[in-house]
Design a protein around this nucleic acid. Structure first.
Lengths: 108, 108
DNA sequence: CAGTCATATAAGCAATTGCTTATATATCGG
DNA sequence: CCGATATATAAGCAATTGCTTATATGACTG
């Protein structure tokens, strides 16, 4: 799969607010089973399952089966395509208005 | 408009490969008129116009009218919501697998 | 003014998306 | 095996998306 396709997948996957909320919850929890994600979600169990499949297909999460439960965690390299893309154009932005690293620090 | 909505807009806007190609071309050229963008594009003039509208609505580009021509350039703060979002979760990623700034440097 | 160039808008359409309900699969405990 | 729990898949549907062609608007030129 080309870098462009991977980046497109990551962006499309994160672009949906409901799915991004699932992703953010996995980040916060560190590791969490699908059941836990369904609880406290606005949408149904199948919807969450479909979002998890999309996140996995985009390489954003990894899973670990433990009996009936499947525990999800963030996949280290999942955001790679996005970070690479931002980094690739950093020089342009740096010249024109700001340094990306500075922005990252200031955003806190 | 909330930060979540802005981030969603940025992600959705960049998620389409054709539109992202338009954005990248504006970055590379520094400033370019819509006509220039239509030339060398796979899609029609109205399609480019619609993508430019989307990019402007997402705050990713700014325009400068000069007679009949409208010149587009990258909007400095357009990627802010995306960079802020990445920065917000940087601490989590840093603990677990990597430092975002290091990744940015290594990506070059 | 009339004609041309640059861009935007309208309308329509096929494809995709995100959700639902219903059902299937898989794993465990008795 | 049986019933319950955890997750996935199927099918259907309304909404959104990205494109097209056709047309409108706006700005320059002679």
């Amino acid at each position: 799969m080309t870098a462009t396709v991977q980046l497109t997948n990551v962006l499309k996957t994160l672009a949906d607010p409901t799915r991004r909320a699932v992703f953010e919850r996995i980040i916060r929890e560190g590791e969490i089973a699908a059941t836990g994600l369904v609880q406290g979600s606005k949408v149904s169990q199948p919807a969450v399952s479909q979002h998890l499949r999309a996140l996995r297909d985009a390489g954003l999460v990894a899973e670990r089966r433990e009996g009936r439960h499947i525990h999800y965690r963030v996949a280290p390299k999942g955001l790679g395509p996005l970070i690479d893309w931002l980094g690739h154009y950093e020089t342009f932005w740096a010249e024109r208005f700001a340094n990306l690293e500075r922005l990252l620090k200031e955003s806190e």
